[in-house]
């Protein structure tokens, strides 16, 4: 069964056309990540799904129900906001139980669900604290707990980790992954961090300027990007692009090479001047220039390469991507 179906969804704010003909399906229990550069309409799309904005045209179905005219609280969704959005005047317990009270659930049910969620998220010690008395990570967990207690069919996360520091972000990412396994609910997760996207997603939706560029599993998108934008967006460091003319005279296409597919070879086709070397211990990133185009090579292990040196990079031809003038994969 499908948890969410978007059919030709459009959204305009006045003259600004923000979402353009969005078609997406989310299966039951699937973890779908929306990625895209800032301002591409990820949050807007999420808010349309939640019912906080009306779609200008198109259909939003959650489960089997057309929900275009259903208020957010009746859609069977729960949302976690980037800024946590905890009620400042309520303590953690009341923050988590407010929605259930609105649904007129019995005291026992509320009690039991809050207990279960707070156990899952390690929040039991903080139930009587107010949001201002919690750390950032704890606040984020409360925000997630507030979503869990409602037992929604569909979870919506809008960049839930962007306010956390790197270590906490990694922990919380793992927690969300565990949560997804434990709850077996469908989740939609917005981020512009492609590591989060790659590690969490069953399916990634890449958006640009309000349009869906490609939908697929992380590895599908990584190995088979339909266009230059998707190829450049996923993967870190990003894919290198250069005129294919660099390696075969007169070729008008654009050549794309992933940094890890470049190898140091004395007979390599690409002669590069090293600009900078990043020694990461396990890997070495070499930033170099080929005929005025900057490229990055990710070499496994440690290498002693100096700035200003000239090196040759080679690659296996089956790892090369080619794009036409419109950026489409060939």
């Amino acid at each position: 069964m499908t948890a969410l179906t978007l059919t030709n969804v459009n959204k305009s704010f006045g003259d600004v056309h923000v979402l353009k003909d969005i078609n997406i399906e989310v299966e039951d229990g699937e973890f779908v990540v929306f990625v895209g550069p800032s301002g591409c309409g990820k949050s807007t799309l999420l808010r349309v799904i939640a019912g906080l904005e009306d779609a200008t045209s198109g259909e939003v179905r959650i489960g089997d129900n057309l929900v275009n005219a259903t208020p957010p609280s009746k859609r069977g969704i729960a949302m976690v906001f980037q800024s946590y959005a905890l009620y400042p005047h309520l303590n953690v317990r009341k923050n988590m139980s407010l929605a259930l009270k609105q649904e007129r659930k019995s005291k026992a049910v509320i009690e039991q669900r809050v207990a279960k969620a707070s156990k899952m998220l390690d929040l039991e010690a903080y139930l009587d604290r107010y949001p201002s008395e919690l750390s950032g990570g704890q606040r984020q967990r409360v925000a997630i707990g507030r979503a869990i207690v409602r037992e929604p069919k569909l979870f919506l996360f809008d960049e839930p980790l962007s306010n956390l520091d790197a270590a906490l972000r990694m922990n919380t990412r793992l927690e969300i992954a565990k949560l997804h396994d434990a709850l077996a609910a469908s989740m939609i997760y917005v981020t512009h961090d492609q590591t989060e996207a790659m590690t969490l997603a069953d399916k990634i939706v890449v958006l640009r300027d309000g349009r869906v560029e490609q939908i697929g599993s992380p590895m599908e998108l990584y190995n088979n990007p339909v266009n230059q934008f998707v190829a450049g967006f996923l993967g870190s460091p990003a894919m290198n692009f250069m005129p294919a003319g660099f390696v075969s005279e007169g070729d008008p296409r654009t050549l794309g090479l992933r940094p890890e597919d470049l190898q140091l070879r004395t007979d390599g086709e690409l002669t590069a001047a090293v600009l900078h070397v990043e020694h990461l211990g396990g890997d070495t990133n070499v930033i170099a220039q080929v005929k005025g185009t900057q490229i990055t090579a990710r070499l496994f292990g440690q290498h002693s390469i100096d700035q200003g040196q000239t090196v040759n990079f080679g690659y296996s031809p089956e790892r090369a991507y080619y794009f036409n003038a419109d950026g489409l994969r060939m």
Partner: peptide, 8 residues
């Protein structure tokens, strides 16, 4: 918006 989702 969180309150709207929560049904207030």
């Amino acid at each position: 918006n969180a309150a709207r989702v929560d049904g207030l």
